[in-house]
Amino acid sequence: MKLIRDRWDHHNMEMNEVHNYNCELVKHGTAPQWQKRKSTLIARKHGENPSPFFVARAIAVAMGIHFIIMVMICGAIIVHSLFNKEAPISLQECYCGPCPKNWICYRNNCYQFFNESKSWYQSQASCMSQNSSLLKIYSREDQDFFKLVKSYHWMGLIQIPANGSWQWEDGTILLPSQLTMVEMENGTCAVYGSSFKGYTENCLTPNTYICMQRIV
């Protein structure tokens, strides 16, 4: 019994020494590492300023997100512009080769769309004064952008009263592969519509017109 009591007293003395040692460490600022970590977490919880590394990382993440959003917006704009291009007739500054300035150059032909309304004969004279002729369709493949035209314009096509056939200004006969004629008004001249269709029109009716120069 005495041996058990001596061991118990010895255990109590060791516990008191450990407690006093911890108190001394806290008093002199040498608390164990886990106590320091606990104090740091408590301080952060109560509003201490975050570390510079944390702030820099947050800024980098925000800038990365901003960059991704800008790339997506630019991509959407580019895709939209590619799929919503207007016909080449809207390119007023297009110039290449021997075409007159501000004329449209497309596959070795020069074109100009005139917004003034004139009769067929007046339109023909206007084109001739600019060393050109009214529009002629040579090939649907080489002049494919004309399928996008939506309004009516005089072209260099006129009907021969003797046999009712259609011919171009240069005297060549209209071929079915060039253009499809649609009877509209009683007349011997033709306006160009869209999708390679020509419409009969009275030659004296005012219309806008297209002049062209063939390079080759």
Rank of each mutant, 00 (worst) to 15 (best):
H28F: 10
S195G: 06
F83S: 03
I69D: 07
E86K: 09
Q130C: 05
E48K: 05
H153T: 00
Y138T: 03
W8K: 03
F146Q: 08
I65F: 13
M128G: 05
A58I: 03
Q143W: 05
Y95D: 09
G97C: 11
N102T: 12
N108W: 08
H153D: 00
C96D: 15
R44M: 15
Q178T: 02
S129P: 03
K150W: 05
C94E: 10
N115F: 05
I65T: 13
S117M: 13
N102S: 04
I4Q: 02
N16P: 05
L148G: 07
Y121T: 14
Q213F: 12
C74I: 14
L135M: 15
E141G: 04
K150L: 05
L204I: 13
C211T: 00
E185H: 04
F54C: 10
Q167S: 13
M13K: 14
N109R: 15
S165N: 13
S51E: 13
K147I: 01
N108L: 14
H80R: 10
M15K: 10
K38W: 12
K150A: 02
M70G: 05
F196E: 02
I158Q: 05
N108A: 14
Q143Y: 03
K36L: 15
M128H: 11
A60G: 02
F113C: 00
H10Q: 14
Y121L: 13
